[in-house]
């Protein structure tokens, strides 16, 4: 934190993400669908791990309820 090229950009992001995760949860959208992680350009392996882990998390959660709701409405 605080190492943002634009000084405080990531701090602002972190605050919003904290809020959004809880709002999503209250709205019935699993908060695990939103993830925020700081990975520097020198941390390739961390980025790969994070993405793989996130992919697994999403796979386990299944399709987004939004998508399902959209499909129902379209039908």
């Amino acid at each position: 934190m605080g190492d943002c090229h634009y000084l405080y950009g990531n701090v602002a992001t972190e605050k919003r993400v904290r809020f959004l995760k809880k709002l999503l949860a209250f709205s019935g959208i699993e908060e695990e669908r939103l993830r925020c992680k700081w990975v520097s350009s020198a941390e390739a392996s961390e980025f790969v791990e994070e993405m793989q882990d996130f992919t697994e998390t999403l796979r386990a959660l299944g399709p987004s309820p939004l998508k399902q709701a959209g499909a129902q409405r379209a039908a």
Binding site: M1, R18, L23
Partner: peptide, 25 residues
Amino acid sequence: IIDEEFNYRPGYSEGKSPLNILGSA
């Protein structure tokens, strides 16, 4: 949520919203 996360509740707390404060709140 804003209260839990940032100890701020509009109209009850003093000052600006944590989302409108530069840096950590």
